[in-house]
Design a protein around this nucleic acid. Structure first.
Lengths: 252, 252
DNA sequence: ATTTGTGAAAATATTCACAGCG
DNA sequence: CGCTGTGAATATTTTCACAAAT
């Protein structure tokens, strides 16, 4: 709430690798690990694409942004590709992460093995609630948020995970940024304002359900009453009843 | 445009409202509720856009897909817009949801107030582990997964949330689909194969961190090779040393 | 024989910029 | 005036389709 001009992280192209591609690389990486475990030494773009849930043209285009590492007529060497993608994602180093907010969700996140196994180390847990400070979770002591600066500097933390209630999230974000954190993963259901140069990604559970709700409604509309009749092209589904004040069930 | 191509395969198009717009509607909705709570009756596209973290042109374009509900020279009526967006998202009805997997994360999800407050009702919790069946979480008894069919039919459940370990997720998805569920929110770190007509959205915690890692690496690289706090910045570790000690919910 | 890598085309998404309404 | 709604201009992403490589 300072007078500063808020800026949201710009989307788009990131030096050579398109953002959409970056978002898929972790999926490829996981699929490759599974293939490696299953004993594959090489894999074709088609096989890997199926495992990753994309089509093979997209996969090849994505990989082409990292440079090309396949052999025509054969496919990709799994180990090599794992290495290339890991490197591209910056996973050759182990990033230190702090997690703020050890409530319901934060507690689960602290215990989530997927972080540690993928190159992220939780350096510390924080909470603003003095009651929780000192509590031991997943092998870590919960510290008071006032120690944040110290820990971030000490442990060279670049990434912060926010799992506080929404009304605390912006202040926590401000403190993270001030402490020097430049990437934030936000689980609180709110939009964070951060300065340029700080990346924010949001994970929003209810939002995902709402998107599913949209599609579910679509399916119900077109399958149900009218035997699947759909509105003609150019005609957006007409919104019924311009004014209704039955707001009791409205999502929040 | 002309030529109705019988496009059936789902890749993300939605008749009428672009997928990218759908994904933002919940954000607008939340911002609008906040504005309403703060006493605003009307809001300009610029104000709402800032609150939602987008630019105003995008916001207006998005809203135009729902039909137009603003007043030129004034802005939008908050209550009306809430109603319109809620309707578009299908939130005028309360969807029943089942949650499968009450481990670490599932437990937290079951207790997440954001679901209930946004129009979703958890109809039942399931787990495959007989040890957990009967346990009471967030006011619900954990049931055995063999009861799934029954509950889905009985309670007209359309949406399933999967928070099992990765290696169980596909089978759970199959059972959900067979039971009649047509939308799945998947927290397990794996790609699900589902038939056409079933929507899947994925929430992947480690994936988000990996995307941040990518950007963090870029910042480290470009910020004068060593401006910062990044571990081993400038020293690109030669090999990732595929160390894997995943236990719990990990699918790598 | 296969399968990659990639220009070119098509489809989506975002932003611009301004006419037109209140 | 101020602000919405929207065509037109850009930008990004996906898909096609085939030459080149092994």
């Amino acid at each position: 709430m300072s007078g500063d001009r808020p800026r949201i992280r710009a989307a788009g192209r990131t030096r050579g690798v398109p953002e959409a591609t970056v978002a898929r690389l972790p999926v490829y990486l996981r699929a490759l690990h599974a293939l490696a475990d299953a004993g594959h030494d090489t894999v074709s773009s088609e096989e890997l694409a199926v495992a990753a849930g994309v089509n093979s043209a997209k996969l090849r285009k994505d990989l082409s942004h990292l440079g090309s590492y396949g052999t025509r007529g054969v496919g990709y060497e799994v180990a090599l590709l794992v290495d290339q993608i890991s490197r591209a994602l910056g996973l050759t180093q182990r990033w230190a992460v702090v997690l703020i907010g050890v409530g319901n969700l934060g507690h689960a996140l602290a215990g989530y093995a997927g972080f540690a196994s993928r190159g992220f180390r939780i350096a510390a847990l924080f909470d603003a609630d003095a009651e929780r400070v000192g509590e031991r979770i997943a092998g870590l002591d919960v510290r008071h948020i006032d120690d944040l600066d110290h820990v971030v500097a000490e442990e060279q933390v670049c990434i912060g995970v926010i799992s506080t209630p929404a009304d605390a999230a912006q202040e926590v974000a401000d403190r993270l940024v001030e402490a020097g954190v430049t990437s934030i993963l936000n689980f609180a259901p709110c939009v964070l304002q951060v300065p340029d140069g700080v990346d924010v990604r949001k994970v929003d559970l209810a939002l995902e359900l709402q998107i599913l709700s949209f599609h579910e409604q679509r399916k119900a509309d077109s399958a149900g009453l009218n035997g699947g009749r759909n509105p003609a092209a150019g005609t957006v589904t007409p919104l019924p009843a311009p004014r209704v004040d039955a707001r009791e069930v409205v999502g929040r």
